[in-house]
Design a protein around this nucleic acid. Sequence first.
DNA 1: TTTATATATCGTAATATTGCAATGAAACAA
DNA 2: TTGTTTCATTGCAATATTACGATATATAAA
Lengths: 109, 109
Amino acid sequence: MGLAKTEMFTNEQNKISMFAKAFGHPARVAILQHLFKIDTCICGDLVSEIGLAQPTISQHLKELKNLGLIKGNVEGTSVCYCIDKDNWSSMKDIMAQFLDQDISSNSCC
Amino acid sequence: MGLAKTEMFTNEQNKISMFAKAFGHPARVAILQHLFKIDTCICGDLVSEIGLAQPTISQHLKELKNLGLIKGNVEGTSVCYCIDKDNWSSMKDIMAQFLDQDISSNSCC
DNA sequence: TTTATATATCGTAATATTGCAATGAAACAA
DNA sequence: TTGTTTCATTGCAATATTACGATATATAAA
């Protein structure tokens, strides 16, 4: 089917999986890392930085933008991308809640 | 293509995306949350807990096991699953490094 | 041995993802 | 206007993912 049955899960579970899915491709991880590293807006040199074709990068950027993790400002013919800090922050809270679940000492396996 | 060009990315980027991909489905998030909540091994009540068919759950468990995030011990006719705490911990370190990147005050967009 | 129970695996259909060539659109330069 | 540059969109092929029925396997119970 290739189709997740999202209606069976909580909002939180669906949110976590949506963010995780966005990070589930190394190109998107690389894009985000680059945006953090550059630390200021970059204007579309991502194609040369990462080795994928321009339409491919554009598609990955679109996914990250749709999730709200990055913003894009048009500046002349180029577009200026950067991390959406507020949304990144709330994403981090949600992911942390999931990743930092208490691991008790009860061992069994 | 449906095939990520992993050879273009760093080991770290590939690792992050592999873990993230595992969390990229709400059923696997639910499975992991349940394993944390139960806090001790559960033996296959995941199928009733989550509303998916038994082969589907088994498939999700296999993915999590292949990544090392959970362990499964055979106990009679049933299998006892639990979080692999050591591996969960190192996964968390890797993910935290990615998620906690410094967000400077440089705003641009 | 036979039966029941629990889980894994196989096979397959439906859908999603990835990547890119070709093309479009928008702003600027000459 | 006519290029030129930059990025987005379209269309499509290759591959991956998700879900589950059918079946296999393995242990335990009767």
